[in-house]
């Protein structure tokens, strides 16, 4: 188990390195020059920062300086477009994205998994067909259509819900729902598919032959294996949810992390870009590991540290 986690973390470092390399060279290839779009940074500060991050040095040295700063001081650099440390930007916006993401996750699991179970149990009935059609709508209608529609139809008609903004506890409902909708739809389909696959297996017939009630067969014998595809999906999906979504943040005016990323790409703000990308990559690796461990707990055959026969 320890060996496995260690191995995965080492592999994760490799992934981060690859991600860093890609974003580094892409950032360097972007048109323009950092600090050219600056408004609120004085010339002396610019000079100071250039020196600090070695921006006048050859490319290969710059390539090494940035990660060594992260490792030695936890310093992700300074945003050239915002004139603030990247660390500050992340630490301010990430908690917002985290709350939003957790809300979205709750919606996704709370809606998606039960729909998937009901659909699988009542397969090929009109209940199944209509639930799956609804799930398909969730997949096919983009967040930037759902969001505005929710604003028109729901927020405008229900008191207490604001069209946009971030402050009161209720404010997170609509953006979290919008963000979680696609995942809910995918989860419904994955849960249904996984459950049907398990329900067609021989050991389900054994369970019936033992005289178990259909509910017990589903809950005790089928659900574990049936949830495995959903668990594998949720790892990266949850990482994406808590690292913010530019679209949802823009529509509902949420001060999350996603907007910084897109803005950095547009403004050629290389430190902010790399910082946010690495942070996102780190979250993905962490969540993938979590979903692998959860898979191991659910399925003894892949249980870590034990050799399957």
């Amino acid at each position: 188990m320890f060996r496995f986690i260690l191995g995965r973390l080492l592999q994760g470092l490799l992934v981060l390195l690859a991600l860093y390399t890609i974003t580094f060279f892409l950032a360097k290839a972007m048109p323009g020059e950092p600090f050219t779009t600056e408004k609120n940074v004085s010339e002396t500060t610019k000079q100071y920062l250039r020196k600090l991050y070695g921006l006048e040095k050859p490319l290969w040295q710059q390539y090494i300086i940035y990660p060594s700063k992260i490792i030695s001081a936890g310093d992700f650099g300074v945003s050239t477009s915002k004139g603030r440390p990247v660390n500050d930007i992340i630490s301010q916006s990430f908690p917002v994205s985290l709350v939003l993401g957790l809300g979205a996750l709750t919606f996704a699991i709370g809606i998606g998994v039960p729909i998937g179970i009901i659909s699988a149990v009542r397969r090929n009935s009109w209940v199944d067909w209509s639930l799956m059609a609804v799930a398909m709508v969730g997949i096919c209608v983009p967040a930037f259509t759902v969001g505005p529609l929710l604003q028109i139809l729901v927020a405008a008609n229900i008191p207490g819900l604001k069209v946009a903004g971030w402050g009161s506890p209720l404010d997170f409902l609509l953006p979290a729902f919008t963000l979680g909708l696609v995942s809910a739809a995918y989860l419904a389909r994955l849960t249904r598919g996984g459950l049907l696959e398990i329900l067609s297996q021989d050991f389900i017939r054994t369970a019936h032959s033992k005289g178990l009630s259909p509910t017990r067969v589903i809950l005790k014998h089928a659900l574990r294996g049936g949830l495995l595809p959903s668990v594998a999906y949720l790892g990266p999906a949850f990482a994406a949810m808590i690292s913010g979504s530019f679209i949802v943040e823009t529509i509902f005016q949420v001060p999350g992390m996603g907007q910084h990323f897109v803005n950095a790409a547009i403004a050629r703000d290389e430190f902010l870009l790399m910082g946010v990308a690495l942070f996102f990559g780190f979250l993905i690796i962490l969540m993938n590991l979590a979903s692998d461990i959860l898979t191991g707990l659910l399925d003894p055959r892949v249980r870590i540290g034990k050799e399957a026969s």
Partner: peptide, 8 residues
């Protein structure tokens, strides 16, 4: 093999 539940 296939008739025993692999998860339990």
């Amino acid at each position: 093999m296939s008739c025993l539940n692999p998860y339990l």
